[in-house]
Simulated scan of single mutants.
Amino acid sequence: MESQYCFHDELVADVKIRGGRVFDIGCGDGLLLHRLAPFAEQVVGIDPHKEIISRVQERLSSVSNVSLIYDDFLTMQIRERYDTIICVATLHHMDVRAALSKMHQILAPGGRILIIGLATNKSIMDYIISGLLLLPIRLMDRVHGGMKVIGVRTAEPKESLGEIRQVAHGILPGAIIRRRFYYRYSLVWNKPKDANENGIK
């Protein structure tokens, strides 16, 4: 199983409870958009790769509440606010500080950021934990089978989990960041309901 898909169930479950408007950064093959659509008022996916967006448009042509944007998240001007912002295996493709700051900006008061990210190993503890997880991950792959996502761009992460925590806590105070399986981490942050709206509509 492609590792990022392992977290789709919990992301869908969150949106199922909260509903509202959802923004998926780096929407990739559109599978998560498709699964989120029945539980959200509107789902918007953005990806900077034209060929990927074209394929997803075909795939989701019959889903009325999904919109797709072919653009760069960091440079695109976004005036709308969203109740949930999702970012799966995409944050390491961007400048972490700039990306988290923009997510904070476009998140509606009372909204939630949900990130499944990748970090690199830099400390001794990073390498120890990765080594301990290697065998169970390989066993899970054998049980579930492997699956490749064709055409989705990949990149190696540059920041360690400790570095990501440091940046995130400066921008998203109180964010909950946990090391997860498949060398991933999760970040969850709830924006206060009384947050300054900064003039975004």
Rank of each mutant, 00 (worst) to 15 (best):
L31I: 15
L31T: 15
L33P: 04
L36E: 02
A37S: 12
P38D: 11
P38H: 13
F39I: 10
G45M: 06
G45E: 07
G45T: 09
I46Y: 09
D47L: 04
P48F: 12
P48H: 12
H49Q: 11
H49N: 10
K50Y: 13
K50V: 09
K50I: 08
E51S: 15
I52N: 01
I52Y: 04
Q57E: 11
E58S: 14
L60T: 00
L60R: 00
S61W: 07
S61F: 11
S67V: 01
L68F: 05
L68K: 00
I69S: 06
I69V: 12
Y70C: 14
D71E: 09
D72V: 08
D72C: 06
F73T: 00
M76E: 03
M76Q: 02
Q77F: 13
Q77V: 14
R79C: 11
Y82F: 15
T84W: 08
T84C: 14
C87P: 01
V88W: 08
H93I: 05
M94H: 12
M94Q: 13
D95I: 08
D95E: 14
D95P: 06
V96C: 12
R97H: 10
L100M: 09
S101W: 01
K102F: 09
H104C: 13
I106F: 12
A108M: 10
P109F: 14
G110S: 04
G111K: 00
G111T: 05
L114P: 00
L114E: 02
I115D: 00
I115M: 02
I116V: 13
